[in-house]
C-alpha cells in the first residue's frame, strides 16, 4: 500500500477518482452512460469530449515544461489557427466539401507549427527566457487572429468541420480519438526513442547535457514546435465546436489551465522528469472539476475561485516547507532556518 502511495501518479489518480465518486453520490446520473442511436452519451462522455482542446494544449505544455520552459502563447496560437482555418473555409466556394476542410485544417496546423518554431527559435537559438519569449506571441498572436478575421467573429457552417468537435466515431466522440491519438503518439515517441530521456536531461541540467553532447537546441526547438502544433489543432477543435472563429475568446486563459493540469499531473515546473499519463489525468481532473462546479449551480464565470483554491492547495502540497511541517508532525526532524540551502552543503563543505 505504501508503495502504491509513493507512486508519482497516486495522488492525481486518487483525486480524479475522489471527484468522480463525490459527483456520483451528489447526482447518480453523473456516472450513467446511455446509448442513443448507436452513440454513447452522458456526463463522463461529455468530459472526455470537452477536454480535447485543453488536453492537446496541456500535452504540448508538458513537453515544453520538461525542457525548463513555458509556453504562454498557446491561447493566441489557438486563436490564429482557428482564424486561418475558418477564414479559408468561409472564403471557399464549397465550404461543405471534405477536401476544402482538410486543406483549411492543414493550413491552420501549418501556421501553428510555424508559430511554434518561432517560439522555439527565440528560446533555443536566441537564448531568451521562455516566459518573455512566448509573451511576445501571446500579445501579438490575438492581434494577428483579429486581422485575419477582420475583427469579426467568422461563423461557418460546414459539415466536415462540425464533425471534428461534435462528430462520433465507433460510438464515441471523434474529439476523444484526436486527443487519445496525440497522447499515445507523444508517449510512444518519448519513451520508445531516446527523446524522453534526452528531454529530461536537458530540463534537469542544460549545461551538463550540452557538455555530454546532447543536441539540446534541437530538443528545445522540437518541444515548442510540438506545443504550437498541438495548440493549433486545439484551436480548430474549439472553432469547430462553436462553429466560429472568435479571436478574442478562443483559448482565453487556456495557458493557465494547461500549466495547472501539467502540475496537477505531477510534472514539476522546474523541468526535467515529466509524465504524459499524469498530464492526461490532470486535464481530466480539471474538466471534472469544471463540470462539478457547473453542477453546483455556480456560474462558470465564478469557477476561477475554485481553481485558485486548487492551485494553492497543489503548490502547498509540493512546497518543501509543508513537507518539513509534515515531517515535524510525524516526529523526528526539527524545522530550522536555512534548510533550503542545505542541499548544496556537500559541495561547499
Amino acid at each position: 500500500m505504501t508503495r502504491l502511495m509513493k507512486h508519482r501518479l497516486f495522488w492525481p489518480v486518487f483525486s480524479l477518482l475522489a471527484l468522480i465518486v463525490i459527483n456520483t453520490i451528489a447526482r447518480p446520473q453523473f456516472i450513467k452512460i446511455t446509448m442513443r442511436d448507436g452513440e454513447f452519451y452522458g456526463a463522463l462522455i461529455d468530459i472526455l469530449r470537452n477536454c480535447a482542446p485543453l488536453m492537446l494544449v496541456a500535452l504540448g505544455m508538458t513537453l515544453v515544461i520538461a525542457t525548463r520552459g513555458i509556453d504562454l502563447s498557446v491561447g493566441a496560437v489557438m486563436a490564429v489557427s482557428g482564424a486561418v482555418t475558418l477564414t479559408i473555409i468561409d472564403g471557399s466556394s464549397s465550404p461543405g466539401s471534405t477536401s476544402t476542410v482538410l486543406v483549411a485544417i492543414l493550413a491552420g496546423i501549418g501556421v501553428s507549427l510555424v508559430l511554434g518554431l518561432w517560439n522555439g527559435f527565440l528560446v533555443a537559438v536566441l537564448d531568451i527566457q521562455p516566459i518573455i519569449a512566448t509573451l511576445v506571441l501571446m500579445l501579438a498572436g490575438r492581434g494577428v487572429a483579429l486581422l485575419i478575421t477582420d475583427g469579426f467573429i467568422t461563423t461557418v457552417n460546414s459539415e466536415p468541420l462540425n464533425f471534428v468537435a461534435t462528430g462520433y466515431l465507433f460510438a464515441l466522440p471523434f474529439a476523444l480519438f484526436i486527443w487519445l491519438a496525440a497522447a499515445a503518439a507523444i508517449a510512444i515517441v518519448e519513451r520508445r526513442t531516446a527523446l524522453g530521456v534526452l528531454t529530461e536531461a536537458v530540463g534537469i541540467n542544460p549545461e551538463a547535457s550540452r557538455l555530454a553532447g546532447v543536441r539540446s537546441r534541437g530538443i528545445i526547438l522540437g518541444a515548442y514546435v510540438a506545443s504550437g502544433t498541438l495548440a493549433g489543432i486545439a484551436g480548430i477543435i474549439y472553432s469547430s465546436n462553436i462553429r466560429a472563429a472568435d479571436a478574442n475568446a478562443a483559448g482565453d486563459l487556456i495557458e493557465l489551465y494547461a500549466i495547472l493540469a501539467v502540475v496537477l499531473g505531477g510534472t514539476s515546473l522546474m523541468g526535467g522528469k515529466f509524465t504524459i499519463a499524469g498530464t492526461v489525468i490532470g486535464v481530466l481532473i480539471i474538466q471534472t472539476l469544471d463540470s462539478t462546479i457547473l453542477f453546483l449551480g455556480v456560474s462558470s464565470a465564478q469557477s476561477p475561485v475554485f481553481f485558485a483554491i486548487v492551485v494553492v492547495i497543489v503548490v502547498l502540497i509540493q512546497s518543501p516547507r509543508v513537507h518539513q511541517w509534515g515531517r515535524a508532525l510525524t516526529g523526528g526532524f526539527r524545522t530550522r532556518p536555512g534548510t533550503e540551502v542545505r542541499n548544496d552543503a556537500e559541495v561547499t563543505a
Partner: peptide, 27 residues
C-alpha cells in the same frame, strides 16, 4: 552543475554519452 544529471538514474547518466552520440531516434 556541468556533469551529473542529478534526477536521472545512474544507468541513464552512464548511457547519456552513448545516447547523445547515437541521436534520439536510436535508443
Amino acid at each position: 552543475e556541468e556533469g551529473i544529471i542529478a534526477d536521472l538514474t545512474v544507468g541513464e547518466n552512464i548511457a547519456l554519452g552513448i545516447q547523445a552520440r547515437r541521436g534520439w531516434l536510436r535508443k
